[in-house]
Design a protein around this nucleic acid. Structure first.
Length: 856
RNA sequence: GGGCUCGUGGUCUAGUGGUUAUGACACCGCCUUCACACGGCGGAGGUCGAGGGUUCGAAUCCCUCCGAGCCCA
């Protein structure tokens, strides 16, 4: 074995040699199934570090479960549809989606996405994820979006999908609907106009051009000034129609006059009020940003023109009382910077049954638990149903036609799916007899695709089993992906989607801020892999507490890389000593104290690691393994048994132990660092480490007595190292003699080798003088017993004489506290006793349970 | 503005009622000993965000404030 561990070479080698079929999921397997509803990422082309964190966690779980005898399904999906791809494709080819053939545009999007998937797949493979590639799904392909369409049809038939009015955002210049994500906000100045509707009703508005769209006025219910107005009606100037005055808490009494005008629609708050108070819809704006006939004499004017004209007219009527300049945020189109307008249009909705979703969510086990609160808070604050239609192209088509003759809606039958209604006609005529249809041009929200992933991976509409075992995902998409999935699972099969949901945090840059291209703090997984390899990055990913956000730091990656070198060096040492050794039962009988000590500690480690892996606390598990390998096994155990190994004296017991420990440690680490563990495993075992079982605790090796003695030997060794260090001696410098006074069965053979000195153990403590050096009250006992008198008791104990303190170590002692006699018991205190031995010219070192005399 | 989370040596971090607060990185000294200098041994460094409360006892529980972050208005 080479001295240096070459992570990159080893990782490349195993990527080539591994047979990925060992990760394939078999429905017919008799093992218990463990199905993971993995997130399908949006194929942007780069698998970023946030994905890496998420996938590492999934892979730790998948590999751990596999080694524990589960048949694990780790599928990989790609959530393809959406606006960003449309935008990228427009940029790439210099086209506009509305100016070219829909089918052609869709094709360009598909090609673009396929390229991106290819790149991301490569990174996922390089990171060593145990993905079952035979279970890959791609939402833009007909096999998948057929399922999305079936889900639409079924929910429509159950009455869970309906059509209704909802605002869409349009850019009046581009004459197209745009998404919230496409709005930029600009700070600007505008005029707040105080407009008199009647003698006692004055409103303040920044949008006078919308007065003809006014459908109500609102005041805060606690506003004393307007108590008598609520419920009354008032005539709208320039519009001429009458509107009611209503009360609503959301009105800010301190803004303007405290009376606000509600229009359909000025902004998102108007939309809320419109829904909440069931107001009339009064749409005065056309898609091109001009006013329609509902605006009366202003019909045909552009909004900006209408604004001037309306203010002019109002001034002429003496209705404009005041105009003050204020700062505000205006939403503008990201492309042309024109202020956007809200425009009511017919949309498709999914009904949201809040109680049902919460009830379902509570049946799922949430890790960490508090993440459930986020979902509940979100659901409870929802103000309207889920709008699922989008005015876009690259998405799953809504399988619906409208009869050109009678206008009736025809929803596709399941047998007709998949279908694109803009290209295909329905196979039968409308009830009215007409065969002329207009296909639905709107398409489905991308979350309609991705909210059926747990169903899709088990073969729905003929699910092989359900619910699945686990959903791992980030907390940033609880409100979307987790919520929609629970909603859809409930609606489609009346069942929870998964038994458990594990939420991971998001990744920040080294500066503590969210990674973003504009800040320039983005680190790509490839960058890390090129320098330190996948295992090092995986160790960083394991260092996070589940649910909490994680900062990327090179420091952690480097620390991971160092641990790999340490593990490699340890393995190199162990393997060089066991190459010609076969474990034999009789060697167990001959195990010495140090062997039994380390094996016992290892078994306790196994219990601890299992417990934490079950809780998804990979940070705790890895930290414990690292600590064991580095500070127990390498620094102490190996140092203790080197003598036996080099001398050949009692060496088989050490060899048995080295092999036992290495075997367990490698298997414990395999889910987290699959490459280096495989490499080391291959040097002394056959088959892949990834098809082995996870180490089990062997109770017969848990040995408290040996641990006590082993810890003491470790302490003695450390004390002697410190002694040599203080004297300026080399650590391997021989000493004349070391005499250990101890009642424990210290192994003088190992300790002698390790200190390079003769070690003598003696039970007799000749002419030993004892003195209580420290006396620590055990407050856990004293607190409940004496309550507020504890301090007095402690003071009384401190006043005791040396002889009395020594007496208290062995028997109860009566002391006087505030005139009361109190009997103190030895078990209420921790004693630290100094033992001095006279007549010996030697350095005296004391450890917990021994006195060590060093003759040099 | 609402929901959730976090604030611990220089930096990052463990720690949900017990006195002397965990570890890592960085730092300082010593040691190139045959697994490892990406190492070993030793050392220095903290009023646990601020204030108040509960308690015999608070980093830990409660309240208020300050600061940071995420998601949503």
């Amino acid at each position: 074995m080479e001295k240096e561990y070459k992570a990159l070479e080893v990782e490349e080698k195993w990527l080539k040699n591994w047979d990925e079929r060992m990760y394939y999921f078999d429905w017919n397997s008799k093992k218990p199934h463990y199905i993971i509803d993995t997130p399908p990422p949006y194929p942007t082309g780069s698998f970023h570090i946030g994905h890496a964190l998420n996938w590492c966690i999934i892979d730790f779980i998948a590999r751990y479960k596999r080694m524990n005898g589960f048949e694990v399904m780790f599928p990989q999906g790609w959530d393809c549809h959406g606006l960003p791809t449309e935008v990228k494709v427009e940029e790439k080819y210099g086209i506009k989606k509305n100016e070219i053939d829909r089918a052609k545009f869709r094709e360009l999007c598909i090609n673009f996405t396929e390229e991106n998937i290819k790149k991301m797949r490569a990174t996922a493979k390089r990171l060593g994820f145990s993905i079952d590639w035979s279970k890959e799904y791609i939402t833009m392909y007909p096999e998948y979006y057929k399922k999305t369409q079936i889900s639409f049809v079924r929910m429509f038939k159950k009455g869970l999908i309906y059509r209704g009015y909802h605002p869409v955002i349009i850019c009046p210049r581009c004459e197209t609907t745009i998404a919230l994500a496409e709005i930029e906000y600009r700070k600007g100045k505008t005029k707040l106009n105080y407009i008199k509707f009647s003698d006692d009703v004055v409103i303040a508005t920044t949008r006078p051009e919308l007065i003809p769209a006014c459908v109500a006025l609102a005041v805060n219910p606690s506003d004393k000034r307007y108590e008598n107005l609520v419920g009354k009606s008032v005539r709208v100037p320039v519009g001429g129609h009458e509107v009611k005055i209503i009360a609503d808490e959301a009105v800010d009494p301190n803004f303007g006059t405290g009376i606000v005008m509600i229009c359909t629609f000025g902004d998102r708050q108007d939309v809320k009020w419109w829904k909440k108070h069931n107001l009339e819809l009064r749409n005065i704006i056309n898609r091109d940003g001009t006013l329609n006939e509902l605006a009366g004499k202003y019909s045909g004017l552009k909004l900006s023109e209408a604004r001037i004209k309306i203010i002019e007219d109002l001034k002429a009527q003496g209705r404009v009382l005041k105009q003050e300049e204020i700062e505000n945020n205006v939403g503008v189109c990201w492309r042309c910077k024109t202020p956007v307008e809200i425009f009511p249009a017919e949309q498709w909705f999914v009904k949201v049954d809040k109680e049902k979703v919460i009830e379902m969510a509570k049946k799922i086990r949430w890790v960490p638990e508090y993440m459930l609160d986020r979902l509940i808070a979100w659901v409870e604050s929802m103000e309207w149903d889920w709008v699922i239609s989008r005015q876009r192209i690259f998405a799953t088509p809504i399988p619906v036609w409208y009869c050109k003759n009678c206008g009736k809606i025809m929803v596709a039958e399941e047998e007709w799916l998949p279908v694109d209604p803009t290209k295909q006609k329905p196979p039968r005529n409308c009830e009215c007899g007409s065969g002329e249809f207009e296909g639905e041009k709107d398409v489905l929200d991308t979350w309609m695709d991705s909210s059926i992933t747990p169903l899709a991976i088990v073969g729905w509409p003929e699910p092989k089993e359900y619910p699945v075992s686990l959903r791992p995902q980030g907390h940033d998409i609880i409100r979307t992906w987790a919520f929609y999935t629970i909603l859809r699972s409930s609606a489609l099969v009346n069942e929870i989607p998964w038994k458990e949901i594990v939420i991971n945090g998001i990744v920040f840059g080294e500066d503590g801020r969210k990674m973003s291209k504009s800040i320039g703090n983005v680190i790509s997984p490839e960058e890390v892999i090129e320098k330190y390899g996948a295992d090092a990055l995986r160790q960083w990913a394991a260092s996070g507490v589940i649910g909490e956000d994680l900062i990327f730091t090179w420091r952690d990656v480097v620390a991971g890389s160092r641990f790999q070198q340490k593990l490699w060096s340890v393995a190199r040492f162990v393997l060089s000593h066991i190459s010609d050794y076969e474990p034999k039962e009789e060697d167990i009988e001959r195990l010495r104290i140090a062997d039994r000590w380390i094996i016992s500690k290892l078994n306790k480690l196994i219990a601890f690691v299992r417990e934490n892996m079950e809780k998804y606390r990979f940070d705790e598990a890895l930290k414990a393994i690292k600590g064991f390998v580095w500070y127990e096994f390498a620094d102490n155990y190996i140092e203790l048994v080197k003598g036996r190994l080099y001398s050949g004296l009692e060496s088989n017991s050490a060899k048995f132990t080295l092999r036992y420990v290495l075997d367990r440690v490698i298997r414990l680490l395999a889910p987290i660092i699959p490459f280096i563990t495989e490499e080391i495993w291959s040097k002394f075992e056959k088959d892949s480490v990834h098809v082995q079982s996870y180490p089990e605790v062997e109770e017969k090796f848990i040995d408290e007595d040996a641990e006590k003695v082993g810890e003491e030997m470790k302490e003695i060794l450390s004390a002697i190292r410190k002694f040599k260090h203080d004297r300026g001696l080399a650590l391997n410098a021989p000493l004349k003699k070391i005499i250990v006074f101890s009642l424990l069965d210290i192994d003088t053979l190992d300790l002698g080798f390790a200190t390079n000195s003769e070690v003598e153990l003696t039970r007799e403590l000749p002419e030993m003088k004892e003195e209580v050096r420290k006396l620590k009250p055990k407050f856990q006992i004293l607190g409940p017993m004496f309550k507020d008198r504890v301090k007095e008791i402690v003071r009384a104990v401190e006043r005791l004489s040396t002889a009395e303190k020594l007496k208290l170590t062995k028997e109860p002692l009566i002391v006087t506290v505030d005139g009361d006699k109190v009997e103190l018991k030895p078990e209420w205190f921790d004693f630290e006793i100094a033992r001095t031995v006279e007549g010996v010219e030697a350095e005296r070192i004391e450890t917990q349970n021994s006195v060590v005399l060093v003759l040099c």
